[in-house]
């Protein structure tokens, strides 16, 4: 039972970390970044390069975030900005971008599996069971992330502007907020979060050109259900991630893999605003 609870908590934490970058872009830009999976992959390769350079494994996360931020700014300028008025085209363009990034990585590193060193290995005893230490660390990081992101939105100038754009972009522009700049920074931040998440989950999985793909649909569904607030994303991760773990444990991991998609689609069909009203 203790293991089940820990599985649920850590799974929710991972899902949250993986989806956070998507959520902020959706909130401010009303756009789903279909290159999200590719960004996760880039984060994984940053962790790999970081390890190959012999740096401390913990450095890989800020490194990936930095690369993601800069890359995000460039991509926003070149690909996303011309498509503000065509949201479906923006989906397609980011999807195409994901394909391009995947092919570039394949050309550069090959299709093979790479390894990044693990910052913490082995297990820790908690509630009377031995549990993977790194998964617990990820859970702690995810909680810190919720606090940091909420603080960013609530306490900083950027956060204020971003929230204004989320609520009513036209009004925000009328109040003198440079919404173009807010959007650019947001995309950078979203990309940074995605890359950092890629680096964060790398010690649990392996690095290969498709590593981001399996996370893609689940994180889409989570942010659709969560709406645009980080706490409700955490709630969605806990409930749906928990459902996934329970189904995987008691029924069948293959059904478990589809749990989030199916449950989220039904939730949205019955209550189109998802968990954001709660």
């Amino acid at each position: 039972m203790a293991i089940l609870v820990l599985d649920i908590l850590t799974t929710a934490a991972i899902l949250f970390a993986v989806s956070a970058g998507l959520l902020i872009i959706l909130g401010v830009m009303k756009l789903i970044n279909f290159a999200h999976g590719a960004f996760l992959t880039v984060g994984g390769y940053m962790a790999y390069l970081n390890g190959a350079a012999g740096l401390s494994p913990w450095l890989s996360i800020p490194l990936a975030a930095g690369v993601g931020f800069l890359g995000g700014l460039v991509i926003e300028r070149v690909i996303v900005r011309p498509l503000y008025d065509r949201p479906l085209d923006a989906i397609l363009a980011t999807w195409g971008l994901g394909i391009v990034i995947g092919q570039l990585i394949t050309l550069g590193f090959g299709r093979g599996v790479q390894f990044a060193p693990n910052p913490i290995s082995g297990t820790t005893e908690l509630f009377g069971v031995d549990y993977s230490a790194y998964r617990l660390a990820v859970a702690v990081i995810a909680v810190l992330l919720v606090v940091a992101l909420s603080a960013l939105l609530k306490l900083t100038r950027f956060g204020l502007n971003a929230r204004a754009v989320i609520m009513n972009e036209r009004l925000a522009r009328g109040l003198g907020i440079d919404s173009t700049r807010v959007r650019a920074l947001t995309f950078g931040l979203g990309a940074a979060l995605a890359c950092a998440a890629g680096a964060l989950i790398t010690p649990l999985i392996s690095v290969d050109p498709n590593m981001g793909l399996p996370w893609l649909v689940n994180s889409f569904m989570l942010v659709m259900v969560a709406g645009v607030s980080f706490p409700s994303l955490l709630v969605a991760s806990l409930i749906l991630g928990g459902a996934q773990v329970v189904v995987s444990t008691y029924a069948n991991p293959i059904l478990g893999g589809m749990t989030i998609v199916v449950a989220a689609a039904l939730v949205l069909r019955i209550s189109p605003k998802g968990f954001s009203r709660a």
Binding site: I32, P87, V217, I254, M258, L266, L268, P272
Partner: peptide, 30 residues
């Protein structure tokens, strides 16, 4: 029915259509 209802976002419909082949492929694999 899942994707189109009053108030559903076009991008949500796209996500559902993306999930459909993924779920179906999984069914075939199993």
């Amino acid at each position: 029915w899942l994707a189109f209802f009053h108030g559903s976002l076009p991008l949500y419909a796209s996500i559902i259509t993306l999930a459909l082949p993924i779920v179906l492929t999984q069914v075939i694999f199993s």
